[in-house]
Design a protein around this nucleic acid. Sequence first.
DNA 1: TCTTGTGAATAGATTCACAGCT
DNA 2: AGCTGTGAATCTATTCACAAGA
Lengths: 235, 235
Amino acid sequence: MIRRMSQARERGIPDATVARLPLYLRALNGLAERGTATVSSEDLAVAAGVNSAKLRKDLSHLGSYGTRGVGYDVQYLIYQISRELGLTQDWAVAIVGVGNLGRALANYGGFVSRGFRVAALFDADTSVVGERLVGMPVEHIDELEDVIRTRDISIVVIATPAAAAQPVADRVIASGITSILNFAPVVLNVPDGVDVRKVDLSTELQILAFHEQRKADRESGSPIMAENLAEAMDA
Amino acid sequence: MIRRMSQARERGIPDATVARLPLYLRALNGLAERGTATVSSEDLAVAAGVNSAKLRKDLSHLGSYGTRGVGYDVQYLIYQISRELGLTQDWAVAIVGVGNLGRALANYGGFVSRGFRVAALFDADTSVVGERLVGMPVEHIDELEDVIRTRDISIVVIATPAAAAQPVADRVIASGITSILNFAPVVLNVPDGVDVRKVDLSTELQILAFHEQRKADRESGSPIMAENLAEAMDA
DNA sequence: TCTTGTGAATAGATTCACAGCT
DNA sequence: AGCTGTGAATCTATTCACAAGA
């Protein structure tokens, strides 16, 4: 029952689409800054570096916010995507681990900008505890559970060494956190219902290395690789 | 012609598979450290947090490196994956932009560990140029082209402010670079044949916020959302 | 006339389930 | 008896191509 609405708003937006919404949002913000009032799917797709049919299908999952023959109203679309992503409220984020990376994250401007607010910083190292960063004192990891509850933290960023990441995850999950952004190079074990996203420098470098190697192989031109190249060029 | 070999080794490994190989490699290294000699697809899959059929299919793209009834030899598989990813050679990496993030990246241990070597650091800020980091002097961005060529850099990490990223990308591409890891929050415009991977904190946070919002919506229990929850629990 | 929104077609990834080998 | 490797089935995502609407 209650099966009306734009068909998509009601039930899940595809993951692949959700992953691209931030990209569109950024492109739209760029256009807005340059004073553009209206944009076609084609132009927005170019700005975001995707195919325009994909962009239109993605946006169609949020609703029907364009005007045929005209395009999309930039401000209106910014608002709709922001709302869909939950950026119209602001989320209290805690960063655990104030090493080089943690500091970089805390200082990262775009972080605080829209929708997110660094509400706590934690470290286990007592020589770092007490230091101030972006106006926040670094607190001792012992305070983790208390602070998460009292400051209504909803997203935790783990920027600890690898060995500390799982215990930290266990503790924040026990404190009710269900959204974790993990920078430590380990696979976190978490119960169902907890979302973990992982950012991993070495993984990204390895993927680049793979492709770089392929390119090098092609240039050195073994017969098999030459054939691959020919096939690749057909595309 | 020459259409033999394990059917997969010759022609492209799926992107989704390539993206997971680093994950398997890490899980395998963990097992190796604990002295495990042999592992089944099931156990390795658990360690890597994926489905075992997927793991087997992924590995089958590299070749037939398991033993039926037994599993995979840990050391041998580490070697095969490393070779496939191109980690048996080492890649000279340059980091452009030595702010908080650039420093964190330069100091990141796992970076240097296997396959990668920080071979140059660049910044436009003359007050940073000359400073030493991980044994390397920070060089002025003017040296970019020369250094890329003379030190045989093959991967460039862009950790500059957003506005500097595209010009830097243009310059490194003009110097022959075809692999870029971009931390700046912009879509880089690059010609065909250049691989760009993007790591983006705010994108990741926005994706988490989306899911977090969904969870919150469910708990507040509108009829439609309650229905969604019921459906989700069927799975 | 121009551009959206979307069915239909295609491509790609995941999962199932079991034959085949050790 | 146990586990890999893989066809077949399924699910998800992308792209095409055009009807419908401004």
